[in-house]
Nucleic acid binder design. Structure first.
Lengths: 149, 149
DNA sequence: GCTTGTTAGTTACAAAACCAACTATTACAA
DNA sequence: TTGTAATAGTTGGTTTTGTAACTAACAAGC
């Protein structure tokens, strides 16, 4: 309760959320209309497309997604024949996930769209800004600000 | 997996979402635990705290929130006696919203927490980076990338 | 006056996210 | 070997959001 020198437009979490929402919107529309996918499904698809075979836990760690989200995303992706599951022989709790031919095709298309989309977003920025932005965002993604009270 | 020069870690919408989530987490916990607020409610509260009396539509425009979100947020905030509504005399469709004494107190506390939290996030960055980041994020928030197909 | 269109805000129902409890399997120690 | 804890993943019930339809009030044309 001090002097009111605070501005929402400077508050980083707010700014980040606004920018994230605005910059995801059009791409989101695309994978939703084209494949009826949710964000969780898109993310799982991309992880499998990029890194090949993974388990649900591995995806969870990389994408920082909760396991229930992954479970449901995988469920829907297998229904649509984009993903196959294979039980691990040694540890029968884990499942190895991989893209089917269809899944791979969808991934390839969406990846291209994403690339073009990204390029268009970056048009608004100059290259130095863009690189700095990515670096800073990665830093913030890992930041775990502790007790601020 | 073909000519694969695409990396999820470079895709701006993904990076932004990750950074936004990570950087909002602790603050979100705070207003949730302390006041049982949702993000929408926090945003409405802040807009009223910062700009004084506003209508729901005005908040919607500034915060880029859909009117149904605002409607529900305002409903809950009035239930908790953080916000009052006053019908406009001339145009009886519109309601002027304002913070109560309680609402103002909550706002003041959360604003201080937000300020400290923001400062802590910025610790990871040097001042020049921080300023650039804000500028770029504001730019991206307004960007409306059209047809990228 | 009426009719049509627009705007402010709410509500209803469906979709999705969240959280906690659950099953099945493995690990490990007494 | 048996009991306890840990891990992989799923399911159920509640909240929250999204979408579209709705009410109420104004506006503008005729």
């Amino acid at each position: 309760m001090e002097t009111d020198n605070f501005d929402l437009q400077d508050f980083l979490p707010y700014l980040l959320n606004q920018a994230a929402e605005a910059s995801s919107l059009e791409f989101q529309k695309y994978y939703k209309n084209r494949y009826g996918m949710l964000r969780t499904e898109w993310r799982v698809l991309f992880h499998l497309g990029l890194y090949g075979q993974l388990t649900a836990s591995e995806i969870g760690q990389r994408a920082r997604m909760h396991k229930t989200k992954i479970s449901r995303a995988v469920h829907r992706l297998t229904e649509r024949r984009f993903v196959t599951r294979r039980r691990d022989e040694d540890d029968r709790r884990v499942e190895h996930l991989a893209l089917t031919r269809q899944g791979l095709a969808a991934y390839a298309e969406l990846r291209d769209v994403a690339q073009r989309y990204d390029a268009e977003l970056l048009n608004a920025l100059d290259p130095a800004e863009a690189e700095l932005l990515r670096r800073v965002l990665r830093k913030l993604s890992e930041a775990r600000p502790g007790g601020f009270t």
